[in-house]
Design a protein around this nucleic acid. Sequence first.
DNA 1: TTCATATAGTACCGTAACAGTACTCTTTCG
DNA 2: CGAAAGAGTACTGTTACGGTACTATATGAA
Lengths: 158, 158
Amino acid sequence: MLKVSKLTDYGIGLMASLARREGDNLVAARELSADSGLPLPTVSKLLKVLTSSELLVSTRGASGGYALARRPDQITLVDMIEAVEGPLALTECSGNAACVCELETTCGLKANWSWINQQLLNTLRGITLQNMAGSVARDLRTLTNENTIQNSTKKAVS
Amino acid sequence: MLKVSKLTDYGIGLMASLARREGDNLVAARELSADSGLPLPTVSKLLKVLTSSELLVSTRGASGGYALARRPDQITLVDMIEAVEGPLALTECSGNAACVCELETTCGLKANWSWINQQLLNTLRGITLQNMAGSVARDLRTLTNENTIQNSTKKAVS
DNA sequence: TTCATATAGTACCGTAACAGTACTCTTTCG
DNA sequence: CGAAAGAGTACTGTTACGGTACTATATGAA
């Protein structure tokens, strides 16, 4: 698993859809629902959450709708994922919250999980809505070759 | 969340516990249970799963027990996580399985998710049980500075 | 001013995965 | 043969996910 929830996936799809419409400054939930094929209630719920996380701005009333709160290159994957599913922590102990796990003294893994969590966050923070709206692989092509963490690690360990 | 399940966390703790006992070639589930503070049934279930994924070897009968199937530096985080919770895919569409998501044509995010999934896998594959049994941060210190994907990205985009 | 349209807020429910537990069977050493 | 240990199966409670319905509020236009 290690998966992102369906709602999150949908939410990012909606954000990408908005990012691709440079022209329209306001898009109604109904329109995004038709576009994506997702049921309106689901879309509404997501847009509301994204708004309360300040990734979108909303205008109420007739001819209202939603728009991006910032430029697409100023919104990261972490922003979007955390907006829908809360602060992301690999394990109970890897987040910032005070860990009350009584096994902590015996397992001794907390520091490691925190470190790993930080690495994943860094990776995800490097990807923006702008990348997602287009092709991540094209934008970040320079990274896919030999300078990934994996290869560097082999060197560091040996 | 983007979290790993509790069971997975426990499982890796057990693996680390085994990795730290260089001497003992066979350790009983009961012993690992006492060590970790986890209930025996839970420990047994996990050890069984880890064995069927060929990360551990088991010996039945009196004075039986479990041992690592390979050297700790030959077992990666991905091996352990997938052993407990199956193949890891960030979204329905990011794995290798044929994606039957009927929204795929509209969402157009599949390629991006696959790429991101691959990045995360690379990161996790770079961390071994040996690292987890000790200090990941110490072993991989050389990576924590400025050569993370995040900084390289900024350059590539600008 | 009234109405249609849009977002905001709340509440609810069914399903499935997670986490934990119990019980039985099989193998092996003493 | 019996004790000890792993292997297998099955069951259960809880929680979060995913989806839906209903109501309230705001705004532009007729």
